[in-house]
Design a protein around this nucleic acid. Structure first.
Lengths: 411, 411
DNA sequence: GTGCTTACTTCACGGCGAGATTTAACGTCT
DNA sequence: AGACGTTAAATCTCGCCGTGAAGTAAGCAC
């Protein structure tokens, strides 16, 4: 049973600000009139709240719409450079820091490769700090103009509670052998900016929902198909987190109980059959010594050329992927399933029809009929953008609250 | 991103009423003082709101707590017989109608068996109407004193929207061969009472969360293990529904892609291996002609006696169940998993240790460590009680709103 | 009794959104 | 050009909200 905590009369204003700000952010320039019909707020309240937002410099008037005989509507929009966002992608091979304005334009980015020995936490934190300094220096943007830093990490993120949740985020990552790493605390020592930490697959899912193939859906699953397999579940418009933020670990769903051994230590996991690493490893004719991406590309080329081993492998992958997607459909009943990740983007065009067929064969008819299965529209760099949506989400939900350190007067 | 709709200043009062009413309902008699510290509301507001609730006859004073030197605290509680609830369980073999007071005491119940030909919708609706009339007549309670009728049905329920959502509920049930049956509309023609329709497994899960082994958990999965297999997922205190309310169809999760054929038409479903029907069917030594329950009891007895075939069958069932629970743990990251259903209650004591071990072996270590796996504490009759929680939920969330037809003055 | 402690009630206050009214800013018609 | 109709936005009044301070009630200890 939903327990919505105590609310005072000021929370109403916060809610109204948030509603209008979000509407303007996602549905482009709108007049006060349109805001009124869209949100149900009275004209008076719209005037009040937009007046506040204008005074705060968060929105601005931008032209007007001609009318037939009446006063023209004045369009309002969020000021794109009123604030900025930083997204950090801690990937398997590099650390990428991106600086965005509110309109998601990437103003600068900084890449630092991670070598084999580079997964030491201190080193990664160093790279993030360096990258952050670089993108700020290169654009001349000061820390005061940044809403916060979102960090996408590989592994399970245990969130803290309260307003500075990011400061207490703890990361459990099998890939890097990170065990209860207090990433939030380590970063807090390096920057005064608000911090937001989440799993990289989840931040990519977030980006996909807001700006990619997930747009408009309130219930969706973004399946990330790369070296491993992950998923980001969106339930009723919000990330599904579970008790300790580790929900959506789809890659270790069982497709054959007791089957192939998986790197997680268990057996029969989806990832052990259809992860890029597993596919390349299982392909008898894989070019030796090639990288995972090159190996997968070779597998795809061989299948396109009709080589039986490669065709069989990909056909089986499509069936298993479809069956695992059927599980997601049965369990989560989403409107949409988006397949992303670099391997998903590479193999997607070939596999998609078979995946759809397998999902239809394995899922219950009723929920299957409610779902469309599509490919991602965003490239792999979207992890950085997705990470930047973490402070953006906070900004929009709080009704345009600026961090304490950013109390610049209205532009 | 969560879109909380427009709120007016009156919604605050509704929220406060709901908060206090829920607190009083679940945490027994409390003083105004305790309510204040528990909810964070100011003493003045507590006085106002409890005053309203007292005037509405929804709560009453019940004694006081002695104090050491100060004015004693006056205890408040929800008036148990201020309103009543009806729960209906449309089971596979019977229709059961129960009448409860607000304290969940069953005041009367009516059972009507469903024979082989009795799954016709009109017949079921007749039985519900008859049962409803019976329990009201037997207790002398009038329709005005009933908050609503909750109905638990086997099958997927497509909910309507708006305040009278139950009136437009449509049921898709494979068991009864019900295809898009407008149960809400059919019942609306028979009774003026507010209607609430949901899947029976989900109502049982609801009961388990409120009054059974799920108490206190905000993220949980209630696994229903009967003739078939289902689940009810609770995310952050609320039923997880998905886009069209069919989320949680766990029974058709794949444990062996391409494996045993299932009654859903697909292959390799969990239900095809561990459902009671499947277990009895797969047991070579099953007593011919016995009922499903008798068959399962015989299987259990044989296993307890050490008969190899039976032992192997149950051991395999435990492993598969554990593996499928591992999938739930990975995907939903719950604090608690509750195993219920009549087969779960029957086999639970024997299977539970092996199920726990299998779940540990197959799930990721981090989310597994956050979860406890327990057996249900409620009997199978809890479906009726769970169904009755549907109008109760509405009552508590609306802050104690009485249906239009029940505007009796305060007692 | 007198004083002290604690629970509860009352009341003035600032803030909120709704809805009515007023002002603003355009077309169009004469 | 100027009056008029039309629509957008701003302003104002109203009832309601929760807060917090001040006041009242109801017990105990001395």
């Amino acid at each position: 049973m939903t327990t919505r905590g105590k609310q005072t009369v000021r929370d109403l204003r916060r809610g109204s600000r948030s509603t209008l700000l979000r509407r303007l952010y996602f549905e482009g320039p709108l007049s006060r009139q349109e805001l009124g019909t869209a949100t149900g707020l009275s004209a008076g309240s719209i005037s009040n709240v937009t007046g506040e937002l204008l005074a705060d410099g968060l929105i601005e008037e931008c032209g007007s719409v001609d009318s037939d005989g009446g006063r023209p509507r004045i369009l309002l929009r969020v000021v794109p450079d009123r604030a900025h966002l930083v997204g950090v992608d801690i990937g398997e091979t590099q650390v990428r820091v991106g600086l965005f304005d509110l309109a998601r334009t990437e103003l600068a980015a900084s890449d630092h490769p991670l070598d084999e020995t580079g997964h030491d936490v201190g080193h990664v934190v160093d790279l993030i700090t360096t990258g952050l300094t670089e993108v700020l220096a290169r654009t001349g943007i000061t820390a005061e103009e940044v809403l916060g830093v979102g960090v996408g990490v590989p592994g399970i993120v245990e969130q803290g509670a309260g307003p500075d949740a990011g400061d207490t985020a703890v990361v459990h990552g099998q890939t890097f052998d990170w065990n209860a790493v207090p990433l939030g605390r380590l970063l807090r020592a390096r920057t005064p900016l608000p911090l937001f930490v989440d799993n990289g697959a989840k931040t990519l899912g977030q980006a996909e929902m807001w700006f990619g193939a997930g747009q408009g859906a309130r219930n969706a699953v973004v399946a990330l198909f790369g070296s491993g397999v992950g998923a980001c579940v969106i339930a009723d418009g919000a990330r599904f987190r579970g008790a300790t933020s580790s929900a959506g670990e789809w890659g270790h769903t069982k497709v054959h109980v007791g089957g192939r051994r998986c790197r997680c230590g268990s057996r029969g996991c989806l990832e052990a059959y259809v992860g890029a690493e597993a596919l390349v490893e299982r392909w008898a004719d894989a070019p030796p010594g090639a990288s995972e991406k090159a190996g997968l590309a070779a597998l795809l080329a061989a299948a396109e050329a009709g080589r039986p081993g490669a065709v069989a492998l990909l056909d089986e992958a499509a069936e298993l992927l479809g069956a695992a997607i059927a599980d997601l459909i049965n369990l989560f009943n989403p409107e949409r399933i988006v397949i992303g990740g670099w391997a998903g983007l590479m193999l997607g065009p070939r596999l998609l029809p078979a995946v759809r067929d397998a999902a239809t064969a394995y899922a219950l008819a009723f929920p299957r009929a409610q779902t469309t299965i599509t490919l991602s529209r965003l490239g792999p760099d979207a992890v950085t953008l997705g990470a930047a949506t973490l402070p953006l989400t906070h900004f929009l939900e709080s009704g345009g609250e600026l961090p304490r350190h950013a109390t610049r007067a209205a532009g």
